[in-house]
Design a protein around this nucleic acid. Structure first.
Lengths: 212, 212
DNA sequence: CGAGTTACGCTACGGCTCGTAGCGTAAGAG
DNA sequence: CTCTTACGCTACGAGCCGTAGCGTAACTCG
């Protein structure tokens, strides 16, 4: 419950047999597959190892447990999110929200994301892992979208630069939190109508409150 | 996995020995206690029954499993939320957000809420239970706050009444989702400074976008 | 007050998953 | 060719699950 190294790649300068990168890919894919079929609570390490064609002990050599394994398996999904320049802040927001909602439509993402967050409330190490593997990586979308909007003149530049990070965090929590809540808690569709209403609300909020 | 009746109260006109309401209270309290100490994943039915001074079979006679039990145990916490009239929409929002954040500060609420939502993505019955026991009950706060604000003249009345429900849902998702995301995913404090910034953003959003 | 009905506590059980240990083998590094 | 590490396989004690069976307790109705 303490030692294993997280990823596929062992330090390059190591001696001995290297870890199989193919096995890593197979394990993460098998994990996602199992999440779809079984969900979080019924997913077992033994099941995943069997699907991946790998010994159960190999899983435990690389990941400390179910939690860590699933975080890595799901984090890959989130890297697919992109923010192409669609010409206006409004369009950019609508696009990324729809993209995010589509991701949350995938059963492996739905069930895994919430479960892992739940576990992280009692496990600081897992919390850090989620932060670095998912949260912080996706915050880039907000930073990028904001910079573009400022360059376009749609949003003012922050007066107090020390608050930039806080504003970014706020926007990130509003967008991600609202979409997740709509999709997973309220269980209502994130369709274009709803996205339009949400984006409108957010636009007014952003333009009305430049600084803090 | 299919039969038990959810609550303490058996239908009043029943014959035979009635269910012990005291046992119900003890079980739900024991569940919350176990959530604090063990978290979601390590909480077991046997442990809860021991804490409550009740046979394990009694738990299974009333709840289908861990999921249902925890939903009921946590739902009681959410009923503590209130919305006293603090004079302005802004103050009302800030107050309820802080109250909600304080609730999410309790470890039993943090871990249980996310975990149960995660499970609900694969269990429609559980989803309905969460809806009726938690989500729909707390939506009253939004409805009330909005009516007050409209009466004060702070918010316009909905032009198209058929959209009232949609607007309420949107506001609910924005507030609840953002606060949950801030507290449980980003793991940053929901202090008065942040609440002020969020409320400001929300106020501008609400005033700027009256209808859709 | 007795009969019927339901809840409760207790014990015991097969089945499953966990996480680890031990061993022999495979695959690179020097 | 040797050293080092990863891998596959087997086996294991431990813990929890969810249910069955039984005797007892509590309440309702005639």
């Amino acid at each position: 419950m303490r030692n294993p190294s997280p990823g596929p790649s062992s330090p390059p300068g190591r001696t001995g047999r290297p870890r199989s990168a193919a096995a890593d890919a197979a394990i993460l894919a098998a994990t996602r597959e199992a999440l779809v079929e079984l969900g979080w609570s019924k997913l077992t390490m033994g099941d995943v190892s069997a699907r991946a064609g790998v010994a159960k002990t190999t899983l435990y050599r690389r990941w400390a447990g179910k939690n860590e394994l699933v975080v890595d398996a799901v984090a890959e999904l989130f890297d697919a999110l992109e923010l192409p320049d669609r010409g206006s802040l409004e369009a950019d927001i609508e696009h990324v929200v729809l993209q995010f909602a589509q991701l949350l439509g995938r059963p492996e993402a739905r069930t895994a994301l919430m479960a892992v967050v739940a576990e992280s409330t009692r496990d600081p190490a897992l919390r850090d892992r989620i932060r670095s593997a998912i949260v912080d990586r996706q915050k880039r979308l907000v930073v990028l979208g904001r910079e573009r909007a400022q360059a376009r003149g749609e949003l003012p530049y922050e007066e107090d630069e020390s608050l930039t990070g806080h504003t970014t965090d706020l926007i990130f929590d509003v967008i991600a939190g609202t979409v997740v809540h709509r999709a997973l808690v309220s269980c209502e569709p994130v369709d274009e109508l709803w996205v339009a209403a949400f984006t409108t609300l957010l636009m007014h909020g952003l333009r009305g409150a430049p600084g803090a």
